[in-house]
Design a protein around this nucleic acid. Structure first.
Lengths: 226, 226
DNA sequence: CTTGACATCGAACGCATGTTCAGGTATCAT
DNA sequence: ATGATACCTGAACATGCGTTCGATGTCAAG
C-alpha cells in the first residue's frame, strides 16, 4: 500500500525519521547512524533508510556529509545553533559591589546552574564572545534602567565606554552600583537613565568613576504560574 | 623534552585538541574523528590522540561514547545546548493589532532572520516548546511593563491566563494592545502594570477582553557603539 | 495485461574509524 | 646506573557504517 504523503511531500515515515534524529541528537549529542535510524523506525534495511535520507535531503529537511559517519543534521526550528555559556558571577544591586570577571579563573568547568546559554546570533555580530559575564539583578534599584528584580544582564568586561553605551559603573560618590547610558561631555560624564522620564547624573571628570563593563543584553524570565 | 603542564593539568597539546574539536564541531556540526584530530594537531599516530582523549575525559573536559564513530563532545562553556528557534511574527505596539500564531502555517521553513534562538534551559522547565512565538516591541507604549522599544518578547499562545501571569491583551475598549499582569477578581479583571508605581486597569467581566498569549521572556539587545 | 514509478528487502562490498599492542625516547628522582 | 613516568611511534586488528545492487511487491496509468 502506498504511503500517504502529507504536507510538504513528507510521509509519516519521513517524519518519524526526522523526529528520531532530533531525539537522538538531544540525548546523545551526536547524530545517529543509518542502522540506528533503521532499528528505531522499524526499517529492516539500511538501504531504505538511505533512500529516505536522500529524499529528506532533496526536500531540504536535513543536510548530509556523505562518506562521513553520522554526518547528518536536521535543518529547521530545532537545528543546532552555536551557543555561548555565560557565567553568572553574582548579584547586582545598588548597595553591593559589582562582581567582576577575574582573569585566570576558569569559570564553569563543571556547573551549568550558574550560567545562561545564549545563542551567538543574539550577540553583536562583531563580538568575539570573550570577556562576557552575567549578573542577576536584585531589588528594584535598576528600575530606572528598565531592568527589574530577577533580570539577568549580560555584560562585557570593559574599563572604558563610548558615548551611548550602557555601562555598569561604581559610583564612589554615592557608594553604589548602577546601570546607565554613558556620555562623555566637555568636563564631565553624563549618566543617563534608560527611562526617558528620569534625569541624568553628572560626574565631573576629576571625580572617581569606575566603569566595570558594558551591558550588551538583558534577559527577563517572566514567571508562569503552573 | 617534557611538555609543560599548564593550569588544571592541561598541556598545550590538550588545549589544541580541545580547541580543534570545538572548531570542527562549529564548522561541520558533528564531532571530528580521531584521525582528523591527529592530522590537524600534528599527531602522527591515532593511539596518541586516543591517549590524550583519555586524559581529557578523565579530566572532565570531554565525554566519549566508546566504539561510536565521532562519539565525543566537549563539556564546558561552548558545549552544545538544545535551542529553540522561535519565529518573530511581527511588531507589537499600542495601536497595532497583535500578530498571532496561525495554526497550520509552517513558520521558519528556511529563514533565520526573523527568529530568535533561545536555549531551552532558559524557558520554564515544564514548557514543551510548542506554540511559542516572539514579537518585536515598537515604540514606548510598553514602558509601563518595563519593556522598551526594540525589545523582543517571547510569547506562548493562550486564550486564558492564571492570576499573576503577564499577558498580551487586546483591549477593544481602548482599541489598543498592551502587556500587563493578569488578575481575575470578583466581578472584574485587573490588569496590573509591571512598574509598581503605575496604576492598574480594571475591566468588567462583561466587557470584551482578548487574551492573545502569555509573556514568558523578554530579551533586550543593548546596542554597542562600534 | 503491461509498464513504470515507488517502496522495500537482504546481502555484499569497502572504506572509515576506534582499539590494542609491542615497542621506542626522553626527563627525573633515587 | 636504574627504574619510574610521561610521551610517542607504527602497525595490525576488528568492527562501525555508508554505499551499491539485484530482486520483489504494490499500485496507478496506458
Amino acid at each position: 500500500m502506498m504511503m500517504v504523503r502529507k504536507s510538504k511531500g513528507l510521509g509519516e515515515r519521513h517524519l518519524k525519521i526526522l523526529g528520531f534524529i532530533q531525539e537522538y541528537q538531544h540525548e546523545y549529542k551526536h547524530p545517529p547512524s543509518i542502522r540506528e535510524i533503521g532499528e528505531n523506525c522499524n526499517i529492516s534495511s539500511t538501504s531504505v533508510v538511505n533512500y529516505y535520507l536522500d529524499q529528506l535531503e532533496k526536500n531540504g529537511n536535513i543536510e548530509r556529509d556523505r562518506k562521513i559517519s553520522r554526518g547528518l543534521r536536521v535543518i529547521g526550528p530545532n537545528a543546532t545553533v552555536d551557543t555561548l555559556r555565560i557565567p553568572i558571577l553574582g548579584p547586582i544591586a545598588a548597595g553591593l559591589p559589582l562582581p567582576e570577571l577575574q582573569p585566570g579563573v576558569n569559570y564553569l568547568t563543571e556547573n551549568e546552574a550558574n550560567a545562561v546559554d545564549v545563542a551567538r546570533n543574539l550577540l553583536p555580530p562583531k563580538d568575539k564572545g570573550t570577556d562576557l559575564y552575567a549578573l542577576e539583578v536584585k531589588g528594584d534599584s535598576m528600575i530606572d534602567a528598565m531592568i527589574n528584580d530577577g533580570d539577568i544582564v549580560v555584560m562585557k568586561r570593559a574599563a572604558e565606554a563610548r558615548n551611548g553605551e550602557m555601562v555598569a559603573v561604581w559610583l564612589p560618590r554615592n557608594n553604589e552600583a548602577t546601570l546607565k547610558y554613558f556620555f562623555k561631555e566637555k568636563d564631565r560624564y553624563r549618566l543617563q537613565p534608560a527611562n526617558p522620564t528620569m534625569k541624568p547624573i553628572y560626574i565631573n571628570k576629576d571625580e572617581p568613576l569606575e566603569i566595570k563593563g558594558k551591558v550588551i543584553m538583558v534577559i527577563r524570565k517572566v514567571e508562569m504560574v503552573s
